[in-house]
Amino acid sequence: MKINKEKKEQGKEKHGKHGCLRGCLIFFLVIVVIVGVFLILFFRVPQKIGIVKSPAERLLAPTPDRDGAKTLLSEVAAAGLNTEGIDLYVIPFTDTGENLAIAVLNESEGFSFNRSTGHNPLIQTMIDLTTGDTAQELNVTRLSLEYRDESSQSLMTLSASTNDIKQFASGAMTQQEFMNVLEGKINYPAVLSTQISSIYKFFE
């Protein structure tokens, strides 16, 4: 009788230990799942693998204004910007109907900066592309600027609203303030590899 009681208690103990282990495992798994879901959403994995459309695919699906882009490019060329190696697209945002100007500056196709102005040439290019009459007529509210090197490798994409660019151009915003509102993406591996190869070239 006594032996049976001991066995039952041992069983209970064992059962209790299993329960804790199971509970801990479940708790741990829940935490892992929550963290996993957070990371998946944070790094926009569903958009990257094509399950969910990225904002670019969703908002920039409409037809680009091909004629508008040509007019804008000729206007900035007339104003002195070297348009060789610039691919320019004007495309409406689906949600607002306002236009985004996408400029791809491709060194491999002959792009070079205009260094004759006082501003940083990259910012000057932004100003040239967004502050003219045509950009205003086309209702360009944002610029996306991608820089590609001599091997056509993308080094960065920067974006600013036309309003911010205009404010900087008019002097209402300092360069530091403008840098703070500028958004972008860096292709770090590409930047690093180009810098390392230029250092090698320097020592050769």
């Binding site: 996408i102 996306s144 974006s159």
Partner: peptide
């Protein structure tokens, strides 16, 4: 901001 996100990823669209 979805528009800014779209602009940063606009290279794919271009």
């Amino acid at each position: 901001d979805p528009q800014t996100d779209a602009a940063i990823d606009a290279g794919v669209v271009a």
